[in-house]
C-alpha cells in the first residue's frame, strides 16, 4: 500500500428498485506519483463510474480508494476533475471560473497571490486573452482549456480527466492533447484519464488500463507504454513501439472484448 493512489478490490453495484446491476467488480490499481494512466474501454463499461468513485462523487459498494494512504470518501480539490462537457458556470467569466476554485483552496493566501495564481494557470492553458469572456462566448476547445486551468489551479494531488476531449473536433483535440502533454512534462502531475480514443491513450499515457465489458466490468489488461518523452505526434506515426502499443490496445478492444451490442448485430 505504498503507491500514491491505490484502488483496492473496488466494486460498484447500482440498485434501482428491485433491480440491481453490478457495474464494477474487483478493480485493483496502483498509480505512482507523476504517472499518467489512461483507462480505456467500450462505452458502458463503467470507466466513468470508476473515475467518479476516485473523485469521491460516488461511493463504492465494496473496496476502497487510498490517496497517500488515506481513504477517499468525499469529493475534494486534491482530486480535481476535468469534466467531459467542461461544466463551466455560464454566469462567470473565464477568470472567475478559475478563481472560484482558487479562492476556496487557497483561503490563507492574500488576494493578490490568488489573483496571480489564477492568471498563472490561465497562462498555462493560453487563455489569458479570453479571461474576461463568458463560456458562451468561447469555443468548445477554449472551454475545455479553462476547465483544465480550473482543475490545475486547485493544485490537485491527482488530476482526473473524464473524456476531456471527447466532444471536440479532431484538430482541436490534437492541440489540447499537446497542451496537456506539455503541462504534464512541466508540472509532473499524477493523472488518471478516461478515454475511448486509442491514439490518445497511447500518445499521452505511461500505462493504459483496459477494461472488460460490463456488467461486472473489471481490469482486463494493463499495458505499459515505454515510449520516451517528450513525445511528438508526427514522430510517433512511424515509430514501431507506438504501432505495437496501438495494435495491442486495438486487439484487446476489438478482437477479445468486442462491444456486446456489436456481437448481437
Amino acid at each position: 500500500m505504498n503507491a500514491y493512489l491505490s484502488i483496492e478490490n473496488l466494486g460498484m453495484t447500482f440498485k434501482r428498485g428491485a433491480v440491481t446491476s453490478e457495474v464494477l467488480r474487483g478493480i485493483d490499481l496502483k498509480i505512482d506519483q507523476g504517472e499518467y494512466v489512461a483507462i480505456i474501454g467500450h462505452s458502458g463499461c463503467g470507466k466513468s463510474t470508476l473515475l467518479n468513485i476516485v473523485a469521491g462523487l460516488l461511493t463504492s459498494t465494496v473496496g476502497e480508494v487510498f490517496l497517500e494512504g488515506e481513504v477517499v470518501d468525499t469529493p475534494g480539490p486534491d482530486r480535481a476533475v476535468v469534466f467531459q462537457n467542461h461544466s463551466l458556470l455560464p454566469w462567470l467569466t473565464t477568470y472567475q471560473n478559475v478563481r472560484l476554485g482558487v479562492d476556496k483552496v487557497f483561503k490563507s493566501k492574500t488576494r493578490a497571490e490568488r489573483h496571480d495564481w489564477t492568471m498563472h494557470n490561465l497562462e498555462l492553458v493560453q487563455m489569458v486573452p479570453a479571461k474576461d469572456k463568458r463560456p458562451g462566448e468561447i469555443s468548445g476547445g477554449m472551454k475545455q482549456r479553462v476547465g483544465i486551468a480550473r482543475a490545475l489551479a486547485m493544485e490537485p494531488k491527482v488530476l482526473l480527466l473524464d473524456e476531456p476531449f471527447g466532444a471536440l473536433d479532431a484538430l482541436t483535440r490534437a492541440h489540447l492533447q499537446d497542451s496537456v502533454m506539455e503541462i504534464h512534462a512541466k508540472l509532473g502531475n499524477t493523472v488518471l484519464m478516461i478515454t475511448h480514443d486509442v491514439d490518445e491513450a497511447v500518445l499521452l499515457s505511461d500505462r493504459i488500463v483496459m477494461m472488460t465489458n460490463g456488467p461486472s466490468a473489471t481490469i482486463g489488461e494493463v499495458l505499459t507504454v515505454d515510449l520516451p518523452r517528450p513525445r511528438r505526434r508526427l514522430d510517433l506515426v512511424a515509430d514501431p513501439g507506438y504501432t505495437r502499443c496501438r495494435a495491442a490496445v486495438l486487439e484487446f478492444l476489438y478482437a477479445r472484448h468486442r462491444q456486446p451490442s456489436l456481437h448481437a448485430a
Partner: peptide, 23 residues
C-alpha cells in the same frame, strides 16, 4: 455538473446557495 463542481471545490451550503443555486 454544476453540483459536481460545487462538491469538488467543496463549497459550503451558503456558498452553494449564492454562487451556484441563485444564478
Amino acid at each position: 455538473d454544476y453540483n459536481n463542481v460545487a462538491r469538488v471545490i467543496r463549497l459550503s451550503h451558503l456558498e452553494y446557495f449564492y454562487k451556484i443555486m441563485v444564478p
